[in-house]
Simulated assay, not measured.
Amino acid sequence: MNKSKHLSDIFLVDQLHVGDMNSFDLIFEKYGNRLYAFAISYLKSNEEAEELVQDVFLKLWENRAKLNRESSLKSYLFTIAYHKMCNLFRQKEQHNKYILSEKVQDEKSVNLEEQIEFKEALNQIDQIIEELPLRQKEIFIKSRKEGKSSKQIAEELQISPATVDNQISAALKYLRKHIPEANIGLILYFFLFL
Rank of each mutant, 00 (worst) to 15 (best):
49 A>W: 00
8 S>N: 07
66 K>E: 09
154 A>C: 03
91 Q>W: 08
93 E>M: 08
156 E>S: 09
156 E>P: 07
185 G>C: 11
173 K>E: 03
8 S>T: 11
46 N>C: 09
139 I>L: 01
37 A>F: 08
73 L>T: 03
85 M>H: 02
61 W>D: 05
23 S>P: 06
161 P>V: 08
105 Q>A: 05
162 A>C: 06
161 P>N: 07
183 N>R: 03
193 F>D: 15
32 G>R: 01
20 D>W: 00
122 L>C: 06
181 E>K: 06
12 L>Q: 04
142 K>V: 09
164 V>M: 05
44 K>I: 08
182 A>C: 07
168 I>T: 11
147 G>S: 08
54 Q>D: 05
179 I>H: 00
93 E>L: 14
191 F>W: 11
142 K>I: 09
38 F>P: 05
29 E>L: 04
125 I>D: 00
110 V>S: 10
78 F>Y: 14
69 R>I: 15
107 E>Q: 07
118 F>P: 05
122 L>F: 10
120 E>H: 08
9 D>C: 01
127 Q>E: 10
67 L>Q: 13
7 L>T: 07
92 K>G: 13
167 Q>F: 07
7 L>D: 05
13 V>F: 04
25 D>G: 06
23 S>D: 04
68 N>R: 15
168 I>S: 02
150 S>Y: 10
144 R>K: 14
14 D>R: 15
41 S>D: 09
75 S>F: 12
125 I>A: 02
97 K>P: 04
88 L>A: 14
95 H>F: 13
90 R>A: 07
18 V>Q: 09
148 K>C: 10
81 A>V: 02
70 E>I: 12
39 A>G: 03
45 S>Q: 02
102 E>Q: 11
185 G>A: 12
128 I>Q: 00
151 K>L: 13
94 Q>N: 13
76 Y>C: 02
40 I>R: 02
181 E>S: 10
96 N>Y: 04
158 Q>L: 15
55 D>R: 12
137 K>Y: 00
191 F>H: 11
55 D>K: 13
37 A>D: 15
181 E>N: 12
23 S>M: 03
37 A>C: 10
190 F>M: 11
11 F>A: 15
171 A>K: 00
135 R>C: 13
104 V>I: 09
148 K>G: 08
50 E>Q: 10
150 S>I: 12
88 L>P: 10
141 I>H: 05
82 Y>R: 11
130 E>G: 07
92 K>L: 11
187 I>L: 14
190 F>D: 10
